[in-house]
């Protein structure tokens, strides 16, 4: 779970499975968007960070994996196509977008420290003394706040609904006071380049999307094929059981020739894997009845057909 405060919401609760993400990413670029796209899937979380239309960062994370750049984009596309995700888009300032990027790619110094147990003051002193750049992420069950540091000095605060780094600590401190609040300490290596490469320039986003769509289609076809095979096997089994039942009933009422008549009329149905049901069997009963009239009377034939119909219902 990637914990980030919500910025200024642009779009929320979109099903990414219903969006052409390659087009969507293109529109972000054209619109010179700054902010981030957050994809929440049952399998993990994807974050795409934009700075003035440039896709500066892509991250996909779950308990086992930490993917970045093209791998993250591809994986996010793949998960989005399952249709079981949620996409939120938040606008941020350029500065904040960059800070979030450095935060996501930084090193976790402390993780999930309970604010009741940690000596926060000495932690901050250490940040200053060691001239750390990075971020303190304070979070409760409901809210998140970030405190950014550069070279040991606090840079500002970011919390839910912010679009820029703020200088007032009110919201951040209020999160720290919430029950069960915790803190992560993330540090970045060096100041880094503020103007990062655009992943969309170097990555074939349309190609990645096309691959994901093709893979998804293949998986769906495989699933459908397997399901169809299972259904076909079940139908084949049902056909066999029905034929055996009819042969036995005809043998009792018409003897050996009854079994042959059943075989012949059943063959004429030309089921070829299709489903056997009452409507299909009506024609069978009519034809069988015509043949049976040559060796038996109507009462015996009716009795035989009744037994067949009852038996078939029992099989269904």
């Amino acid at each position: 779970m990637i914990l980030l405060p919500r910025g200024n919401p642009v779009k929320e609760n979109i099903n990414p499975g219903k969006v052409n993400l390659a087009d969507a990413l293109g529109k972000m670029r054209q619109g010179k968007f700054t902010g981030y796209m957050r994809f929440d899937f049952p399998e993990g979380t994807g974050i795409f960070i934009y700075q003035e239309g440039r896709l500066i960062s892509a991250l996909y994370e779950n308990d086992r994996e930490h993917l970045i750049a093209y791998d993250a984009i591809a994986r996010t596309f793949h998960e989005a196509l399952t249709g079981a995700g949620n996409l939120n888009i938040y606008r941020l300032s350029t500065e904040l977008a960059y800070s979030i990027h450095t935060l996501l790619h930084g090193e976790m110094l402390h993780k999930g420290q309970d604010l009741q147990l940690i000596d926060i003051k000495s932690l901050l002193v250490r940040m200053r003394e060691e001239k750390r750049s990075g971020c303190l992420r304070i979070y409760s069950k409901e809210h998140i706040a970030l405190i950014f540091y550069r070279d040991g000095n606090p840079l500002g605060f970011f919390h839910d609904g912010s679009t820029d780094i703020e200088t007032t600590a009110n919201s951040s401190l209020s999160v720290a006071k919430e029950p069960g609040a915790k803190v992560d300490v993330l540090v970045t290596r060096g100041a880094g380049e503020k103007s990062l490469a655009d992943l969309m320039e170097t990555a074939d986003v349309a190609g990645l999307w096309g691959n994901a769509v093709a893979e998804r289609r293949r998986q769906r076809e495989e699933r459908e094929g397997a399901a169809s095979k299972t259904l076909e096997m079940r139908e084949s089994d049902r056909r066999e059981k029905t034929l055996t039942l009819f042969q036995q009933v005809a043998q009792v009422h018409l003897g050996k020739i009854g079994t042959s008549l059943v075989d012949k009329e059943f063959e004429k149905l030309k089921l070829n894997g299709s489903q056997i049901d009452e409507s299909v069997l009506n024609g069978f009963y009519d034809n069988l009845s015509k043949g049976a009239k040559l060796v038996a009377g109507p009462s015996k034939i009716d009795k035989m057909l009744e037994e067949m119909k009852r038996g078939f219902k029992g099989l269904s």
Partner: peptide
Amino acid sequence: LNIKDTPIG
């Protein structure tokens, strides 16, 4: 011989 086990046999 073909239909001896039928009702008409």
